[in-house]
Amino acid sequence: MPTPLIIDTDPGVDDAFAIALAALSEDVELLGVTTVFGNVPLEATTLNARRVLALCGRADVPVAAGAARPLVHAQLQRASHVHGSDGLSGRSAALPEPARALEPGGAVSLLVSLLEAAAEPVTIAPIGPLTNIALLLAAHPEVREKIARIVVMGGGLAGGNTTGAAEFNIWSDPEAARRVLVEEPVPCVLVPMDLTYRCAVDSTWLGKLAASGPIGTALEALTPDYLAHYRKALGWDGIVLHDAVAVAEAIRPGILKTESYPIEVECSLGPARGATLVDRRRQALRADAEGDVAPGRVEVAVDTDLEGLRGFILERLTQA
């Protein structure tokens, strides 16, 4: 049976690859896409998501726009220096125009309607700030039982990429991230940048994508600004497909190796704001410290077959 999936996203180059990965996978029932502020403002992320779906020939997939800002404090920094001024290396307009009108009710309304109508529990893959998902769970706790799991791209175990402590998606709305990852009794998988960086793809991989056909050519054409950034971050010609790694796990559970840990999200206004604090001490030590109150636990992705993962994503993106 196909995996019923909803993607919540802020495209973003790696988001575009992640949307295409799900949209082109025959073993996925892509129920809908919701958008959120993040890499660029909400208007741009929403248009980008709709254009990527049009590229993939998926006019059947509804799209709704969600939160334009964080729950509490303003977002101080976008990621246009990574993804380009429009989120897609300045090349969003080169994609096909959207083939379907935007859903009128907004992201939370679409999420609720899709979950309520689903015949089986649905996987949600939030690959941007977690604002929409926090709002959903706060306002509609009755839908929790319709969620199979939430596969989040975010966080860093050893540090961040936006600050020394925080990864961009979590840093953009720490209060929302804490609500989803710490407070809610919904199964979560966290795919941190520690692992996604290890899954980076090189220029040869991108060349194979570009040579595969019109969709692959169009996706590869979105990468110049992103490639320029990661040339500095990695020290070689390649890009990090953060969000596609998380969506790969959403599509094929177990493609990433996970370990269960208690987690906390730093919501202070100090230099550690947005940090994900994963308690990796031995269980015996944690038990002594926790006493009678055990914190919530999250499945944290820690490893994968790197070549197998890269091959899986490339195969799905080129099969069209």
Rank of each mutant, 00 (worst) to 15 (best):
A250Y: 12
G154Y: 05
A64N: 02
K232T: 04
V28E: 08
R149D: 11
D194G: 09
R91N: 10
A65Y: 13
D288A: 12
P121D: 11
P129A: 00
A18Q: 01
R286M: 11
R280K: 11
L227M: 15
G66E: 01
A250H: 13
P141M: 07
A49V: 13
A67L: 04
L115S: 02
H81A: 11
D10V: 02
E259M: 13
V143Q: 08
D27V: 03
I147D: 11
Y197K: 12
A93T: 14
S260F: 02
I127E: 00
G296P: 12
L5V: 09
D303R: 05
A275Q: 14
T9P: 03
G155A: 13
G87R: 15
T163V: 14
G238V: 00
T223R: 15
A99H: 09
P121F: 05
T304F: 08
N161H: 15
L95R: 08
R78V: 00
G270N: 12
G38M: 01
Q283M: 14
S92D: 10
Y226R: 11
S268I: 03
P185N: 15
E307L: 00
V33P: 05
P224A: 13
G308M: 02
G254N: 08
A74G: 04
L309Q: 01
V265P: 06
L195A: 02
Y230F: 10
T45R: 11
Q283E: 14
G106K: 01
D279P: 05
V28A: 07
S109P: 01
A221D: 15
E264A: 00
Y261I: 06
T196K: 07
A244V: 07
T131Y: 06
A65H: 07
P262I: 03
